[in-house]
């Protein structure tokens, strides 16, 4: 037990927690924006995959890292627009359309990757974002390693959250998005087009998801692997429920989750092979289900979530 407590005292654990949390933060925030506007986006798993692939490919083809992120965001937004064409404008089942988007986006990522790099046995690598050295802070004992020696993209992920909170709760745009998810009729009564608001929200949210995927190939690792996302998108969908659709809680949820994930990797060493490693790998998925059970009773989901809006039709 004391071994487990010692984990918390190592700076490496906290650094890993922050690293693991980043893609989850962006994915969860992206899904949250879509759902606050009333649209479930199950395309997240595929959008994160294609974000990881396209951002990486941009850099591999000689592009710059930051424009690579923008490219990933652009591709993500395109798939978001496709999802909103089906789920918002045509009013198809959001579940079914989202699953279709995931199928399309992930298969396209694999196809394009194989097409551009036909025979690569060892995955080719790029030069990813490097940790930055903040004068003074990075040299601090413990905190320097845990918090102040990350890549610029890591700080970007954390900076996104307060911006999203501000936009969602303090601006007219955020109000329109939240209303579109609670009471679309009221939005329409204000002379605002519900379909436009939802489309914009889904495209923006999908862009965040894609950048979250790109974090894996451009900051956490330096290569693209098939099956890299490995259910992270679905975990984000669970985290949105856990966060009760609030961005601040989403950040906390992602950090808590990442902390437990970082701990299980380290805890594996202490059990001395008594518990098979597969059970440790199961933990993130088990925890996601557990998190939804804990929060289910208190969850205040957007009232118009999953309900397509067709002008002139009663809901």
């Amino acid at each position: 037990m004391s071994d487990l407590l010692e984990i918390f005292l190592t700076a490496g654990f906290w650094a890993a927690t922050i690293r693991i949390a980043c893609p989850l933060i962006l994915g969860t925030i992206g899904e949250l924006i879509c759902e606050r506007a009333g649209v479930l986006n199950l395309g997240i798993e595929g959008i994160m995959t294609i974000g990881a692939m396209s951002g990486w490919m941009w850099v591999y083809q000689g592009g710059d890292l930051w424009t690579g992120l923008m490219f990933a965001a652009f591709i993500g937004a395109l798939f978001g627009l496709l999802h909103s064409l089906f789920a918002v404008h045509l009013g198809l089942s959001q579940h079914v359309s989202g699953i279709g988007i995931t199928m399309l986006a992930s298969s396209l990522s694999f196809f394009v990757f194989r097409m551009m790099l036909p025979s690569s046995t060892t995955p080719p690598k790029i030069v990813p974002f490097r940790p930055i050295n903040i004068p003074g802070l990075s040299d601090m004992p413990f905190f320097g390693e845990a918090i102040f020696s990350h890549t610029p993209m890591t700080y970007f992920c954390f900076a996104v959250v307060p911006v999203v909170i501000y936009v969602l709760y303090r601006t007219p745009v955020g109000l329109a998005v939240r209303m579109a998810g609670e009471n679309p009729m009221a939005v329409e009564a204000q002379g605002i087009n519900v379909l436009t608001v939802r489309t914009a929200a889904v495209a923006t949210g999908s862009a965040f998801m894609a950048v979250g995927g790109a974090y894996l190939t451009m900051s956490a690792f330096d290569a693209f692997y098939f099956g890299m996302i490995n259910g992270r998108g679905w975990i984000c969908v669970a985290l949105v429920i856990f966060a009760s659709w609030r961005p601040g809680k989403a950040l906390l949820g992602a950090l808590l989750f990442a902390g437990l994930d970082a701990m299980q990797v380290r805890a594996q060493q202490f059990t001395g092979g008594l518990i098979p490693y597969q059970f440790f790998l199961m933990l993130p998925y088990v925890l996601s289900i557990a998190a939804m059970i804990v929060m289910a009773r208190r969850a205040q989901y957007p009232k118009a979530l999953l309900i397509p809006f067709r002008r002139g039709e009663r809901i």
Binding site: A238, Q278, F279
Partner: peptide
């Protein structure tokens, strides 16, 4: 508890696959 079944059934896929992996090894 009205927990969404999409996410639970999806996540169970990963859990079951790891469990099968454990059994096979």
């Amino acid at each position: 508890l009205s927990v969404d079944e999409v996410v639970t059934t999806l996540l169970l896929n990963f859990i079951i696959l790891l469990f099968v992996n454990y059994l096979l090894e």
